[in-house]
Design a binder for these strands. Structure first.
Lengths: 257, 257
DNA sequence: CCTCGCGCAAGAGCAGTGCTCTCGTCGTGG
DNA sequence: CCACGACGAGAGCACTGCTCTTGCGCGAGG
């Protein structure tokens, strides 16, 4: 009578195929260990998908391993065969989400040959559109860090995809590789050194001044979207579309594009 | 034998005064209802203080009513006599924190009569300094919203204190009340209308173009601090002080100050 | 062809959470 | 002086992440 809540969901319910129709014969006794490995990969993916859906609904803090297990009609303990802890699952989710956003940004970028300002506007819009379409995912990426969780190195590469897009655009601005003509615009050595590693994200030559402009643009975009999505402009700004378009125009001007 | 974890902390432990020495005679039978009300106010404050400390240590998501109760040597259920919900406690914390930050910003602002650029730099530095000194509180204010929690109207006024400081500074820029001389810099009607309510935060006259500049500056500051504090520039930027100073310079330029 | 072993899922259980309800106490106002 | 109301404590519910043990089923080795 104890622990009834555990199997309540498996009571009179038929197997309920997760997405594909084959599930009761999932271990498919066809090619031995290969099939097992396949099944494992599939279930891993199914868990990730379910977690993704749950994340989109209740946010990172409400992500529950047990709910994922219920969703997939398995015991909560079985999930741990695939993800050692909640953090591991979170990392996989993080990588997937960064990649998702990075892909959206890359797709929105028209690429070299197009006016940098136009490119930046397109990517900025795509960034905001993605964030608005996936607010909880955005919060996962750019909101408060999960307490006690430190993102492993695996997440760095996907996380920098969108930054790289911005840097590429900045690099396509004429003269981005050279120091600005105006000596007053020169960066001091300390600041230049501080942001130097950022330039390695792109292959194209980029003067520190341009790197700084990119970071400035990036910070503004993140700030604007965060303020909007996290409700800080909720009562103050009426038309967020119009406001963001204006921010974009300013960002383009700042980038010198 | 069940529920032992509840009273474990009150076992052989002496009353342990919270901070002041008087505690066992807290109800102080002196002036009737006044004393009771006083004691109640004191305990409410003590709970808030404890929650504040816990917040600073484990972050908003890890804030636990039971831990607060343990800290104050009372039963967890007793806390509910003072705060109906975790959300109620969160709201009180939010108001207190917004006020804390707002006060820091106001204190950093040299006020009218000083060059707007200098004021903006000072407030920007104060904002970042406060955020770095209270990272979890910053996350509470400007990080992911707590799922299921919607900030009540009480939090709006404290939340806008720092915005008001920025608007005041923008209003002190010469010509901030007038439309810019350059017609190309004129805001279109839609954008102007979108941000119009923001201008009501300050008493000083402010052209929509200046309001937009303020919002732009605010977004950049929040973005820069969020990126730094939430670890997104962790591996990319070496000297965050230098980088932020550069951002500040750009923000000042953008404000036209 | 049978049996062993390994991978896996399931269940129970632990410690913790927010929150509710009940009960005993204690001080105060009628 | 007594009843009422505020209050603290404790038990309990439903939930969480995570661990440990048990048992099942499949493929491979003898």
């Amino acid at each position: 009578m104890v622990g009834r809540s555990e199997d309540r969901y498996a009571a009179g319910v038929p197997p309920l195929p997760t997405d594909q129709s084959e599930q009761s014969d999932r271990p498919a006794p066809s090619a031995g260990r290969t099939a097992r490995a396949l099944a494992r990969a599939e279930l891993t993916r199914a868990i990730l998908d379910s977690a993704r859906h749950q994340l989109a609904e209740v946010g990172p803090a409400g992500l529950s391993l047990r709910a994922v297990a219920r969703d997939l009609d398995m015991a909560s303990s079985a999930v741990y065969r695939y993800f050692a802890n909640r953090d591991t699952l979170l990392t996989a989710l993080l990588v997937r989400t960064y990649d998702d956003l990075g892909a959206a940004a890359e797709e929105a970028d028209a690429g070299p040959g197009v006016d940098p300002g136009t490119r930046l506007v397109a990517v900025g819009r795509a960034f905001r559109a993605w964030a608005r379409a996936h607010p909880h995912e955005y919060a996962l990426l750019y909101g408060s860090p999960v307490p006690g969780y430190v993102a492993p190195a695996d997440t760095v590469a996907p996380a920098t995809r969108i930054t790289r897009v911005l840097l590429d655009i900045a690099a396509s601005v004429p003269g981005a590789a050279d120091r600005p003509a105006d000596p007053a615009a020169h960066l001091d050595a300390v600041t230049a050194a501080a942001i130097a590693p950022v330039a390695t994200l792109t292959d194209r030559p980029l003067a520190p001044e341009s790197v700084a402009r990119s970071l400035h643009a990036w910070a503004t975009l993140v700030g604007a979207v965060s303020l909007e999505l996290f409700g800080h402009l909720h009562r103050a700004v009426l038309d967020h579309d119009a406001h963001f378009e204006h921010v974009l125009r300013q960002v383009v001007t700042d980038l010198g594009a």
